[in-house]
Amino acid sequence: MTATVSVTVNGTKYDESDVEPRLLLSDFLRETLGLTGTHVGCEHGVCGACTVLVNGDSVRSCLMLAVQANGAEITTVEGLGTPDVLNELQAQFREHHGLQCGFCTPGMLITGEDLLRKYPLATDDEIREGLSGNLCRCTGYQNIVAAIRSAAAMRAEKTS
């Protein structure tokens, strides 16, 4: 038994037939749609590398089935910005050296976007708390926090 999954990912509409009900959203994005920017670090919902936005909320794509995403609007790291035009948060990650191996980075960026949209992020503690579900083994988090702090400040400036 297979199903058809219709989703909009980064603004592009996809209709995929023959989707097995057990197919994880992370595998659907990476294997079926070829969007390998979303990474899989644990497949049990702890590391946060696979985080994507589903209808505007951050979701662990390894904990969701592709069929559950039917009809949804999804944003992955590929939808944020391009090498020529990085989005604000991506630019701050580069500026502050918020990535080393880059494996956790897609999840960090998507989580960061979600936090920036929903919370004031007035203190570093608040940022660290917000990132507590995303593991990074390279950076010691210091520069990731700095990047998000700086993006938050830029956003606050714009809206004031």
Binding site: T76, P83, L86, L99
Partner: peptide
């Protein structure tokens, strides 16, 4: 600033 970052920040890295 790192050369690697542009691809790694935009999902264009290749692991």
């Amino acid at each position: 600033k790192r050369t690697e970052d542009l691809r790694l920040l935009t999902g264009r890295g290749e692991y």
